[in-house]
Design a protein around this nucleic acid. Sequence first.
DNA 1: ATTGTAGGATTGTTGAACGATTTGACGATA
DNA 2: TATCGTCAAATCGTTCAACAATCCTACAAT
Lengths: 223, 223
Amino acid sequence: MSTLAQGKADLERASTAQKVADMLRERVLDGELAPGLRLSEEAIGGALGVSRNTLREAFRLLTRDRLLVHEHSRGVFVRRPTGDDVRDLYAARRVIECGALAKWPDVDDLKRDAVRRPIEEATAHGAKEDWAKLGAANIRFHRGIVGLAGSHRLSEESDRLFAELMLAFRVVSDPKRLHMSYLPLNREIVELLNAGDVDGAIGKLRAYFDLAEADLVEQLASL
Amino acid sequence: MSTLAQGKADLERASTAQKVADMLRERVLDGELAPGLRLSEEAIGGALGVSRNTLREAFRLLTRDRLLVHEHSRGVFVRRPTGDDVRDLYAARRVIECGALAKWPDVDDLKRDAVRRPIEEATAHGAKEDWAKLGAANIRFHRGIVGLAGSHRLSEESDRLFAELMLAFRVVSDPKRLHMSYLPLNREIVELLNAGDVDGAIGKLRAYFDLAEADLVEQLASL
DNA sequence: ATTGTAGGATTGTTGAACGATTTGACGATA
DNA sequence: TATCGTCAAATCGTTCAACAATCCTACAAT
């Protein structure tokens, strides 16, 4: 049954514009397409072998995800997040994630594990000094937190916020320090949750947001 | 300065696809385009005098807003919200609005008035039995609550949630009863806020969500 | 009643075309 | 030197026509 549902999902994924958008999204998040870069319709369309119309549909999708910005008659550019953007993103995250975390007492172990496990994985990757995977596990930790709310729509919007934040992280000079320094804090959050101190965990999560936001804004300001 | 920024915003608003999307959005929220209706590219494009490509761009925008659903090679349809959709929407609203409301002590009077004023307006419209305006004021009340969080992104996502919810409201048999019955509850929330009892207000808001969700789900189930 | 099988209709995608807008360079003027 | 038009090149915005791919309907066969 689960394999059938999976197969259906694969079949439904067909649109060329959607595939192009997915490919471009990866390139943007990889950093291969740097923030501020202009994406010429002709150049990109020619390189990917799709028509301008189809490419423009893909651009619309990514613009809605805030990875690209569209300027009329000038083209689309890879978004370059500002300090205000980061403040806005963290204001949204504070509300969403702290609110979702408050649901901890009401959810089952499946959802709880989606919060706990990424921290274990992050620790393992940190020990191996695999900073990319550490960062990815960190994202999964926060995705797990949002998942506690039990809203598909909220999770999808959060994914967009995370993607945009990863764009902002690209300007950070030392991502290793950033991710490693917050890992112990996240671990404490999980320990507080396991101990039943949800309010304490929320407080620590909020403290994490304050620290991370200030750090990122400062690095963006020094450019 | 503010007039200049306004003028620039007006100038930038130009794209045909955007205008078509705005027009279609109104029609969908009016109910002129009923949930479940299929939107033929040829028919709509011909009626609006735009090409298929431009129309498809508009469809993508509205699909992202969840007002339309896109089925591959079958076309786009006006979304028909299900009970699960409503539960998802309210789960998201609970997290967002309760979290935003918790910021009440930290915000200025401008933002607080954006919460208080719509309730006064709703009361006035209710007295005149203008149910459409009463519903609109109710939405503004909740927009004001989200605005307390101070995140532009969160407010925009909430607008999408509200729009989708208005789609679900279209199946309600007696919108008058629905809006009127919750107005006193909203008024109590404002009074609690003015009295400084933020936690009490959050509790009442949560109670409102529980009632409204159950009501809407029940009406959707009886179809 | 279920399963194939045409066919017609609609969507998915492409390519070319043309007007509109932006951009950048080149002089003209003060 | 600095500022202001002007003009040409490049790119975007939009339309149109065409064809392949897919879906829907009706009808026949088992």
